[in-house]
Every structure is written in structure tokens, then in C-alpha cells.
Computed example of a mutant assay.
Amino acid sequence: MATHKTTSDKPLRKDAAENRRRILDAAAQVFFASGLEAGVEEIARVAGVGIGTLYRRFPSKQALIDEMVGEMRLGLAAAAREATGREDGSGLEALVLETGKLQVVQWACLPQLWDHSNAEPEALAEFRTRTAELLETAQQCGRIRSDITPTDITMLFWALRGISETSHSAAPDAWQRHLEIVFAGMRPVTDGPFAGPLHTKALSATQVRKINR
């Protein structure tokens, strides 16, 4: 069950709910164009609401960002659940592709998506657990080489994040080519110089947490 809340648990009136949605949609638009440095005054203007209305729904800019991050994490968890239904081992590829699409749409929130926000922690945990399960299934089905680890997939998400942050305005699909290359490299290889096991150790979970900090 999600624990992240930015406003009262009471159901919003229809007009208040519509204002809240407009603010979130406007924030997505403004942050996409200008990054998280954009001011809430611009978000209110794009949403067509007063600054007081914005602050009634979201008491701080960080609360607004957290709400957006929470929605992204819920989307990741939903995508992971859907990918788990694939029994041919293709679920990992489908999930990484959906994750890449989400990241490029909300590139400005990426610094806070994976660790630096308290929004929807259960959804993020579910995503990570299911990603590891999907990797195992892909390996069992012979789609991914056996020495790929969950932290290798974490590094893939980092790489896609970096590409999305740097290329979204000029080449918004650049990350997809990188993804194709990476998955080609993760296929089992039967001959040639890369047929043997990987020589460099994968990152440990402790190293991943240290890097994120």
C-alpha cells in the first residue's frame, strides 16, 4: 500500500481535483521544457490557476516534485507487473523499454526517481524486485546470458537516464538505439572473443547504494 501523500486523505471536490490534475500536467510540461529549476509561478500560469491554489494543493515545490515522482514509480510498478505476465522471457526487454519511454518524458525528475525521494517507496521496491525476477526468467529462457546480474540492469537504467537527460531536446529517441546495442550485447554468445564469462565483477548492492548517495 502506498504511503506517500502530499495533501489530505479526504476526497477532493471535483473542481479541486481538476485543479490538482492541471497543476501536475502543467508541472510536467514546464519541467520538461526548463528542468526542475523552473519556478512554481510559471507552473501556476500554465495551469491557469493562482499561486495560492497551487500551494493549497502542494505546500512546496518539493511536494509537487514528489507527487510527480510518485506517479512515475507507480507507473514503473504497473509496467513491471504487466511484463511479469510474459512467459517467453521477453518481459525484461519490455519493461526496460517502457522504463526508457517514461524517463524521456519526465527527464527532469530523473535525479529523484530512483532514490532521492520518499514518494511511493513500495512501488519502487516492487519494481526492483520484479526486475530481478524478470532477469532470472529471461536467463532461464536463454534470452540473456547467465552472468548478467540485477545490478547490471540498474546500470542500464543509469545509462538510459544519462542519455535522456542530455539528448531529449535534440534526439529524444537516442536512448532506444543504445538499448538495442546493450541488449544485443547481453544475448548468450557461443563463439568469438566474447563467448566466455565476463571478466569484470558486477557491482554489489552496497556499491550501488553508495553510488546513489
Rank of each mutant, 00 (worst) to 15 (best):
N19D: 08
G39W: 00
A108P: 06
A83H: 03
P172M: 04
Q112W: 04
F31C: 13
Q62H: 13
A27M: 05
K101Y: 01
R128G: 09
A108F: 12
D66G: 04
D9F: 10
S60V: 07
F32T: 13
R143Y: 06
H168W: 10
E165I: 11
R13L: 14
A83W: 07
A38W: 09
P197W: 06
L113G: 02
L76A: 00
R57T: 15
A205S: 14
E126H: 08
A2G: 15
P59L: 05
S34I: 00
E18Y: 00
G50Q: 12
K201D: 14
A119N: 02
G192K: 14
A138Y: 07
P111L: 13
E18Q: 14
S164R: 01
L113M: 15
A28D: 15
M72L: 12
A33S: 14
I148G: 04
L24M: 06
D191S: 15
L135E: 04
G48R: 05
H116W: 08
A47E: 07
T190K: 07
M1V: 12
I65A: 03
A77I: 02
T190P: 02
F183Y: 12
L95V: 00
I51T: 11
W175H: 05
F32M: 08
D15H: 06
G89E: 03
R56A: 15
G75V: 01
T99Y: 09
D152G: 07
I43G: 01
G85E: 10
T149R: 13
A123G: 03
A83M: 02
E165L: 15
V182D: 13
E42F: 08
A170F: 06
L113T: 05
A174Q: 10
S117A: 12
F58E: 08
